[in-house]
Amino acid sequence: MNHGPTAGLSLKPEHYADALARRADGLWFEVHPENYMSLGGPRLAWLEAVRREHPLSLHGVGMSLAADEPPDAGHLAALRRLVDRFEPFVVSEHLAWSTRRGAYHPDLLPFPRSRAALDRVADNVSRMQDALGRPVLIENPALYVALDGHDFDEVGFLTALHRRTGCGLLVDVNNVHVGAANLGYDPAAYLAALPAAAIGEIHLAGHALDAGGRLLIDSHDAPVAEPVWALLDDLLARIGPRPVLIERDDALPPFETLMVERERAAAALAAAAEAPVDA
């Protein structure tokens, strides 16, 4: 019997009542805090009710940590209020930018991973952690364009960020698979190079083939693909169990359909818990 969070689901308003009623060992939920930054209202009340029954994670998409400017003070304060109210077991964000000079581009945008960018992102992560009074996890985004001007590969950049700021890592295995296919690197080697002790959470999601037929898109509208499950098994065999999340944002199926995927992740975690961790 495991009493900590094992496998979880992203939570949408359509599934509030199901999430509130469902019981499963280690079940937890994750939401985007940007969807709860209201003065009040029933969604906050629903989230509070779900939080009384299950562990919760706040997974931000809008802090824009890789923008060449400090995080927005109002956004940080709004996140702090949610953290204080809901006491999430994890707070996470992305290695990306989206808001800049008062305009929000709803995506996770890439940047050249230069030394100067590392200075900026490390400063922004530290500002975020200071404002929240706790460490955060930083996630690898899906990548679609091969940029010039990198001083680090993504693993090297994330590792340096972890060493400089004390932040943990949220490893999105689907994004690794998608980025590897799009930019031509080896996903297994990527995952094998990540510092195991820094990994605090793992994301899984479905992807789709772009209309052009060449690029994989991190679409969050389909079940997790088999190659991604295989990468998960290898990662867990190396690092041991960590909270795993099934993300689904579009083409939302019934709650119990998501629970079937969630059970598969829970089984993978149980297997990893019993097996000796690879050296």
Binding site: P106, D107, L109, P112, Y144, V145, D148, D210, L215, I217
Partner: peptide, 27 residues
């Protein structure tokens, strides 16, 4: 100055452009 080159760049940029436009439309 930041693009590695080739037709793949245009395709990849289109993904970001479409995602941003779709994000605003979806909202």
């Amino acid at each position: 100055p930041w693009l590695a080159g080739g037709p793949a760049d245009a395709e990849g940029l289109k993904v970001y452009r479409n995602t941003v436009a779709k994000g605003r439309l979806d909202a």
